[in-house]
């Protein structure tokens, strides 16, 4: 049986296709302004890549913030359940998923059968999300993709005390003006986001092993900072961005 998952996030849209418990492939495209088009488009691209036609796909589950706007989906499931399912599929040992996306962040605790035990999401404040990094990258005039690498060369990390994004931005600007090395400022930014996310996650008793998913998992600096804060090794998922879509594809094969 072939099933598909479509994950429409605020910034990127992801698709994954699974056949009898094996991942056939996945793809990521920008979401753009038309959410339902993005869903159709990403699905078609993946079908083409795998040389499949839509008739061969038995069932489709949509997820992400645009999950209710995917007309061809058989069912919509929240990204909480999909991320848990995806992470468990990729590594059944995993007990906690930390997902940091563009607009939100979440921590999900899963049991030995891959079911969600508890979860928590950020409040509407942007301080623990990808948005925080974007604002800081803009303030520093550095490409966000370089953040992870640059922070690795930091000898120390600057202290950024404000948790409010707006306040933190002025702190960063004043650090720049006092000549603080940029690697240390970036390391400070990573620590700030890590402390926010870990504080949130602690409320639901996170257990090791922990995997990190979502776009921000690509930033090695944030992954390290979170690991340090939690005093535990954290793996960034190989399928960090497509984990939710993979979970959705798997759920499409089950009656949940």
């Amino acid at each position: 049986m072939i099933t598909a998952g479509i994950d429409i996030g605020s910034i990127s849209t992801k698709a994954a296709i699974v056949k009898d418990g094996i991942l056939l492939g996945s793809v990521v495209i920008p979401t753009g302004y038309n959410v339902s088009k993005a869903g159709e488009k990403v699905f078609q691209i993946l079908l083409d890549q795998l040389e499949l036609n839509s008739g061969e796909v038995t069932s489709v589950v949509s997820t992400g913030y645009g999950r209710n706007r995917v007309e061809f989906a058989d069912k919509a499931v929240t990204e909480i359940t999909c991320h848990a399912t995806g992470a468990y599929f990729l590594n059944p040992e995993i007990r906690t998923v930390i997902d940091i996306g563009g607009q939100d962040s979440k921590a999900i605790v899963i049991d030995e059968n891959g079911r969600v035990m508890d979860f928590i999401m950020n409040d509407k404040c942007a301080a623990g999300t990808g948005r925080f990094l974007e604002v800081m990258a803009r303030a520093m005039e550095i490409d966000l993709d370089e953040f992870g690498q640059i922070s690795l060369s930091a000898r120390s990390s600057a202290r950024i005390s404000s948790l409010c994004t707006v306040f933190a931005e002025t702190e960063v600007i004043s650090l720049i003006s006092t000549g603080e090395p940029r690697s240390s400022i970036i390391a400070g930014i990573h620590e700030s986001i890590a402390s926010r996310v870990v504080a949130m996650g602690r409320r639901i008793k996170m257990e090791a092993p922990v995997v990190m998913t979502g776009g921000v998992a690509k930033n090695i600096g944030v992954v390290h900072a979170i690991g340090k804060k939690m005093d535990s090794d954290i793996a960034a998922s190989e399928h960090a961005q497509t984990n939710g879509a993979i979970g959705a594809a798997l759920l499409a094969g089950k009656n949940i």
Partner: peptide, 9 residues
Amino acid sequence: DVRKYNEEN
């Protein structure tokens, strides 16, 4: 809580 204070502001 110093995290909620902004000196410049």
